[in-house]
């Protein structure tokens, strides 16, 4: 029996896609290779390990191929699944791409839910999509004195780059920052420019102490609106909590109690 070669890649979309490129390029045969992300990897016996260096050019090539052969749906599935936290995600992404490139019509790959890897990728895609979609609603901006809109989030998955394009379109004429405090990353948008991903270390920690003059008034208006819009006779905190779990609330204006 041949040894399995495990490709250890960085836990990010580009990292995994580079892994896909290297694993394929190694010509060891699909069944003799496995992809794992560094964060979740646990060393195994009788395996050869190869470290994968993130390479944007390789990742770009893989993603272009996926888009061309597996369609937009395939691309979306790969991108969203990579944002999740799951031990098997890197390998499942590799397998769905292998399947997609082998099928006559690669667009059918996402439909093969009988295949466990495809089913996993599609499940992860759904989870990440849901998280990103929720975050699009739950992000709360605060206006700083210089007019910049600043927001903190702590999503369960790495969805910052999946939701930033939405805000780029929505607030095209605004300067804004979305700060993922869990992953120490932020999306920065300058008026009329494309958004960029940046390391949050760059941020001046005193930044958010200086709110604009109107900020407090709007926060109070919003809080009081959220209270008055509820119908007392239909009160149902359990339903509220299942739709808006507590983990989101620490970053949401209407749930932060005034000091």
């Amino acid at each position: 029996m041949e040894n399995t070669t495990i490709f250890l890649c960085e836990d990010s979309l580009d990292g995994i896609l580079t892994g896909v490129y290297d694993a394929w390029d190694s010509r060891l045969g699909h069944k003799n290779v496995r992809l794992e992300t560094r964060a979740e990897s646990n060393l195994e016996l009788f395996c050869e390990y190869r470290d994968v260096e993130r390479d944007l050019a390789k990742a770009e090539k893989v993603l272009n191929t996926v888009r061309k052969r597996m369609g937009e749906e395939g691309e979306e599935a790969v991108c969203y699944a990579a944002a999740c936290t799951d031990r098997r995600k890197a390998d499942a992404i590799y397998r769905i791409i292998v399947l997609g490139l082998h099928l006559k019509n690669g667009r059918d790959a996402v439909n093969c839910l009988q295949n466990e890897d495809v089913a996993l990728v599609m499940k992860l895609r759904q989870k990440a999509w849901h998280e990103a979609h929720r975050m699009m609603g739950f992000v709360r901006f605060e206006e700083l004195q210089n007019g910049i809109l600043y927001s903190q989030i702590q999503p369960a998955y790495d969805v910052l780059s999946l939701m930033a394009p939405h805000f780029e379109d929505r607030y095209r004429q605004e300067n804004w920052i979305i700060h993922d405090i869990r992953r120490r990353q932020m999306a920065i948008h300058r008026k009329e420019y494309p958004w960029v991903l940046a390391d949050a270390e760059m941020l001046n920690p005193d930044y958010k102490k200086y709110y604009s003059d109107q900020e407090d008034e709007f926060q109070q208006l919003w809080k009081s609106f959220c209270k008055s819009i509820a119908i007392e006779e239909r009160r149902n905190p359990r339903c509220q909590q299942s739709l808006l779990p507590l983990r989101f609330r620490s970053c949401m204006t209407e749930f932060i109690v005034d000091k």
């Binding site: 929720r134 609603g137 609106f225 509820a230 239909r234 149902n236 905190p237 359990r238 739709l243 949401m252």
Partner: peptide, 16 residues
């Protein structure tokens, strides 16, 4: 997009 949920569990999406 739902932006919040009120105490009765209904979605708050628009300034109603």
């Amino acid at each position: 997009i739902c932006h919040s949920f009120s105490a009765d569990g209904r979605c708050i999406s628009l300034l109603k």
